[in-house]
Design a protein around this nucleic acid. Structure first.
Lengths: 359, 359
DNA sequence: ATCGATTGATCAAGCGTTTTAGCAAAATAT
DNA sequence: ATATTTTGCTAAAACGCTTGATCAATCGAT
């Protein structure tokens, strides 16, 4: 292989700054000595202080020394003197439990990064002791603030230690402390969007399979469904809303009842239910979207995008939730009304809905 | 509600340590003053130094002051003096891209935590500049070491800055620098376990739908398949291994070719392919597991556990990968042979395989 | 030549801890 | 009573960096 020829010369003395493993890290003072200046000077050129007067020649010499020695500033020392760290904490109750959490992390990461902050994360999997320790740790690192996030949209109790820091609730809210800042998905708008996909497909008689589990999503998504019907001038028919456990089995199990309803379209509480429903419908010889149109909710990629046919659904904006959380924390963005900030759930249309012209 | 009665007394003066928002954090010195001792003393009682001689009465006084003031040690200052931080960095190329990454984070988190370390994570989504910045950031925080992880098992180039720190590759390996420590899933063992599920089900003529994409997994899973057949005394028949793109569509598309093979069982390169294959098989009126048994690979929960019937598969040990990575980094665990440490892919049996007695 | 500005760089204090050496008082031994 | 040990605590240096105050040298203008 050619690549074996790649690194000619003496492997023991690379030309990269040496920084051998595990020697004491290079410090400011060493750079200063190497450049023949004071540490103050080095500090000034590193931070490119605008009103510092440094000769170009000196600046050059310092930069050379830095490169030569492979100097890396010690962020800890920096933070110590500045009094304020560049950390944002993120405590999550379920990074592992759900494919979604990653997106919250990702969004928070990107946004934090953008403002020069690093993310300190802790996954508690719902363990209260762990959570306390995690928050304590963050507090000790003097984080700028903490994002407290849950893996599904729900009410939560704000742990008391959390109040020792700035914080914002992400994907959750606290009925007990209405003053706590929070950012949540706009379930109602999402439900409305989901229903509108069907409405745009010409459907008038639309079932909604809601969840049996109480949650803000349950109420919100139903409210959205009703709002959409309302806006379309279709009277709400309670008999068209069923309930099932929000997973594949639930969706599958609801098939029978659904078929009694004589609807041309159905909006499922989530994608997993829709996935189960696909199976049920297929077993009954029904084809999607021609015999019946289906939309889901959550946009759980592995499912929605790859079902046959691909499922139209509504996206839970986890990335945005994380990003907006950071912005709120930093005071860049705020909820207009002092309540929770609601993030849009955008519709993503695929092919599980087709035009329904016949009555 | 009863809970409204919960917090009696004057809400403006809670009895919790006050630590009002955004005042200057309480420092050691303040505690010392409050307790009427020196900072040295406070430090000694906080860290419970074994050979420090402190009167019980004093100790008490200090602890009271700490509680009273709501003191939190400043981890930054601590690290500064100790010279070594309690951070472990985790750079991932795809927290968002995959539901798996969360597990690596989770495993690393738990293990790091166990040893008193906090996780500093950075998600690069494959962006090289971001990656360099992320590593630089970690270096500046003087992390104990860095876990460099990829979202699917593959060869990777070790970024040069990574060498400035201790590091271990997680879910990847570097052909260029064989000395780099690495921890990867044991694909061959996994492939063998997958095949053995089928073998145990009495199947002798087993197809393997491999991926078309080159990867360690492609070779490893095939090798495992062959090893299992070998061990069972079944000659390897190359015509029984097909190839398809490793997603639902690929699996669905492979149905036709598969049906020519006259096999009683099929082992798919991954769960997504199996999911597609389910659709294909069903369209052909075949039932799983009676007409044909199926196993997948990856144990992608949302899919495997909820397909109908639930899919037998083999688990990609992401949690363990993260945890083992941390252990390797800390020198607690090492690969026996100096090569990459291989983590077992455990079989998880569900109901997509049934006993096959007929020939 | 003389004086005030300007330029280039340094001094030193301070950020919040830990830790070693040391000191005074109390306890024990002689 | 004196010498020795033990006990309880503190002073102060150090960790790596930033920053306002200073200072010496050079420059421009009179």
């Amino acid at each position: 292989m050619i690549s074996q020829e790649k690194n000619p010369g003496n492997a023991a003395t690379p030309d990269v700054p040496v920084t051998r493993d595990h020697v004491h890290p290079v410090t400011l003072r060493e750079v200063a000595e190497a450049a023949g200046v004071s540490t103050a000077t080095v500090s000034l050129v590193i931070n490119k202080k605008k009103n510092a007067r440094i000769a170009d020649e000196t600046r050059q010499r310092v930069n050379d020394a830095i490169r030569q020695l492979g100097y890396r500033p010690n962020a800890m020392a920096k933070n110590l003197v500045s009094g304020t760290s560049k950390f944002i904490g993120l405590v999550a109750d379920g990074v592992a439990t759900t494919p979604f959490a990653g997106q919250i992390i990702h969004g928070a990461q990107d946004e934090a990064w953008k403002h020069g902050y690093a993310l300190l994360i802790a996954n508690t999997e719902g363990n209260v002791d762990l959570e306390k320790d995690a928050i304590a740790m963050m507090l000790e690192y003097k984080v700028r603030g903490i994002l407290y996030s849950t893996w599904f949209h729900r009410a939560t109790k704000v742990p008391s230690t959390l109040r020792e820091s700035d914080f914002v609730l992400v994907n959750c809210f606290s009925p007990d402390s209405p003053s706590a800042r929070a950012v949540v998905p706009d379930e109602a708008q999402g439900g409305q969007s989901a229903t509108e996909i069907l409405l745009r497909g010409g459907h008038r008689r639309i079932a909604f399979i809601n969840t049996t589990t109480p949650a803000p999503a349950k109420d919100g998504r139903l409210a959205g469904y009703r709002a959409a019907l309302d806006a379309a001038g279709i009277p709400f028919d309670p008999s068209l809303v069923l309930e099932a456990y929000p997973d594949q089995e639930g969706g599958y199990g609801a098939t029978g009842e659904l078929l009694q309803l004589d609807v041309s379209a159905v909006y499922c509480y989530n994608d997993r239910m829709a996935m189960g429903l696909y199976d049920g419908l297929r077993e009954n010889g029904l084809s999607i979207p021609d015999d019946i149109a289906v939309v889901g909710f959550d946009n759980q990629e592995v499912i929605a995008a790859h079902l046959r046919p691909p499922l139209s659904t509504v996206s839970l904006p986890h990335y945005e939730l994380g990003a907006a959380g950071v912005r709120m924390l930093l005071g860049i963005e705020a909820a207009p009304d002092g309540a929770a900030l609601k993030i849009e759930c955008p519709a993503v249309e695929r092919s599980s809905v087709a035009l329904h012209s016949a009555a």
